[in-house]
Structure formats: C-alpha cells, structure tokens
Design a protein around this nucleic acid. Structure first.
Lengths: 197, 197
DNA sequence: ACAGTGATGTCAGTTACTGACATGACAACA
DNA sequence: TGTTGTCATGTCAGTAACTGACATCACTGT
C-alpha cells in the first residue's frame, strides 16, 4: 500500500538510490511474471519501494518505460545518415544508418526478453510502431538535409526502417546465430533485388 | 447527464435508430470543436442521446471509432494480392493491391477531416500505425500464399505499405489535384528507381 | 397470453494518469 | 552555527477510460 518506510540513522539517506532503476527492474519482473496487462503501476511502485506518483515522475506512462533507448537509436541513425559520404545514394546512406546501430544490438537476451513483453500486448506494439515512425520521419529529414528531394527521401526512409524492422526480428528469432549487422546488410541487398523486379 | 428520455406513444419505438451513426456523428463534431483529447466519452454519448456504456458496446475504445474502415481496406488489399496474375512479381502484386483500394479513397474532404483529427493526437497516430502494420502483415501472408518466400514477402509488403502511406499523404495534401490511383502508381515507379540505386 | 431476445440503461468498481501542496535530508552560504 | 533553498519524494484528491453484472422493456414468434 505505502512505500517502504526507511529509518534514518547517522549517514543514512532518506531514500534508496536509483529509484528509476528499481522501477525498471520491478516492472520487468512483474511483466514477465503476470503479464503487462495484469500488472498495475501500484504493484510496480510497491515492489520498487516508491509510490505510484514517483513512477509517473520518471515515465510519462506505463508503456514508455520499455522504450528508453529510442532517443539514442534515433540519434545514432540520423548522425549516420548525415555523416554518410556525399557520393552515397539515399539508400546507401540509409544502409550506413542500419550499420551504425549495430553497437546497440549486442545483448541478445535482453532484446528477446523485451520483445516477448512487447509482443504480448497490443498497446505496447502501438508504442513501438510510433517510435519506428518517428524514426523514419527523422531519417527522411536527415536525407533532405543531404539534398535528397521528396518523395525519394520519404521512400528511402520508410523502406530503410522496414528493412531495419525485418532485420531486427530475424536477429532475435530463436534459431538465429548471425549478427545483427550481418543480417541487416544482407536484407538490404535482398530488398534491392525485390524492388528491381 | 442521462440519456435523452423518450416518451412512447402508439407505434413509437423505445430508442431512436442508428445509435452507432449518431455516435460517430457526435464524436466527429466534438473532436473538431474541442479536440480529441478534450472530448470525453460522456460528452459524445450525451450528444448522441445514449449512455457511455452504449458507446463502449459499439466501439472497443475511444480511438477505434475512427478506424471503422480498416477491415474493409485490408480485405480489398489482400483479395487483390491473391487475385493478381500468377506471373506478377511480389511488388507487382502489391501494386495491384495499391490500385484496388482506389475506390475507397474518393471522398477527399472526409479523408482530410479524419486525418486532421488523427494528426492532432499521438494516441490516434499510434492506432493508425498498428492498423497499417496489421495490414502489412496480412499482405505478407497473402504473398506467401502465392508462393513468395521470406524475406521477400515481408519486404515487399512493408515496402508496399510504405508507398501506400506516402501516396495517401500526397493525395490529401492541400495543394494536390491528382487522384489517389494516379499518385500511387507513380510513387511505386519512383520506389523502383530509388531502390535501384 | 407468454416466453425469449436484443438493445439499451444503471450502477459499482478498477486503473491510468494529473495537479497541488507538504516534507525533510542535504548543500550552499552567511 | 544558523538560515535558506533545492530536490526527490510523499500525500491526497480528482478525472476519465473502461469493465462486469444485472435490470428493463419493446418487439417477435408461438
């Protein structure tokens, strides 16, 4: 019901540190134990030793917690597009962006766990999709800044994000043993073939 | 507060007909007047002359009401993919599907109004995106049924939906005078060019 | 007449989320 | 050493989306 009561003695701080980290930890556990939909914010907060109100100070809503890394991903990709060689075609530049995020996708277990949770709930999929969409918009913007005209910029960005998604899914697939970067590169090649026919 | 009280006389029915239609009408008006986020379901229900509970019997949630046509769209597109000539490449088949939905996009004003509402609210954009995603999944499925292997099926479907989205956006753009079918066809051609480089 | 059906109403409850204000350990500074 | 401010958190009251259970009553068929 109420947050953990902490007794202070000399040198003790009023609250345990890293409330945010504890919330993420508690939420992940509960989502796996009982499912996202069956987990209330009150339960998460209780397990983390804070109040519900504190949860909403760290996360805009119950779903947002699972999309912490989105901003960094977007930064990496747009930087890559911007930094691609001037000679690169739009799709080449997108390919560079696809490569650039390889460093983020290293912890396969973590990515799988997270995806299991997301795939189990429609509202989480909605949130994931809007993140992807904003990403595509940002990439289109970066392409335009390189001088790519519309609709080529939007098409290349949309297409690139599509490839990104398929690549990520293939990477976390149960049987897979290839690296993300490997898969992404080969899928982009596949796409060129598909589009050429 | 409570629904319109109806006095019954000879031959009078207990409730006005077409509660669903009245709800759609009332909601659209209110969304335009005060914005989606500032409109409560209670207000919609009151204007439509029913109770809140009735609203939720017709629509799974407040957002779903704006996506009535999604099922029909999906049916049209998957049927088109399935019915495309056996000789058609995956992207050709998707092109047929893009054409097939032309009949749905005729009332430009209606589409614009609807899009204005959706664009004004993040949660509505989320819902729109998941509809698009389910559409892409269904098309990939239809392609697989034609014998298209993965990842070509997913790539063609994703790509096709990307083109669909860009085409739709171009069609409802303020300055546009071209037809949806026209735009969609030319964008698909653009895509082939972009992907070929 | 009578029983069954279907669309609606009523009501009570849960849960996500928000705004306003209180608290108290700590740090900075006088 | 005392004062003052800041910051993370707690407390509390409220709104609004949604759900389940049950009641109502015109209509329909027998």
């Amino acid at each position: 019901m109420s947050a953990t009561v902490i007794k202070y003695h000399g040198g003790m701080t009023r609250w345990q540190p890293d409330a945010r980290g504890r919330l993420v930890q508690a939420a992940t556990e509960l989502y796996l134990e009982r499912g996202f939909g069956q987990t209330t914010v009150a339960q998460i907060a209780e397990r983390a030793g804070v109040t519900e109100r504190t949860f909403f100070r760290y996360f805009a809503d119950k779903r947002e917690m699972l999309f912490d890394g989105a901003a960094r991903l977007q930064q990496l990709m747009t930087d890559a597009v911007t930094g691609a060689p001037a000679s690169a075609t739009p799709l080449d530049a997108v390919g560079v962006a696809l490569d650039a995020v390889g460093e983020v996708f290293v912890d396969l277990d973590h990515s799988r766990t997270r995806q299991v949770i997301i795939d189990s709930d429609d509202s989480l999929q909605e949130r994931e999709l809007i993140k992807r969409d904003r990403l595509a918009t940002a990439i289109a913007q970066a392409l335009r800044a390189r001088g790519v005209a519309e609709p080529a910029a939007s098409l290349a960005a949309q297409t690139g994000i599509g490839v990104f998604h398929v690549a990520f899914a293939a990477w976390i697939a149960p049987a897979n043993t290839r690296s993300y970067a490997d898969i992404a590169r080969s899928l982009l090649a596949d796409l060129r073939v598909v589009a050429a026919t």
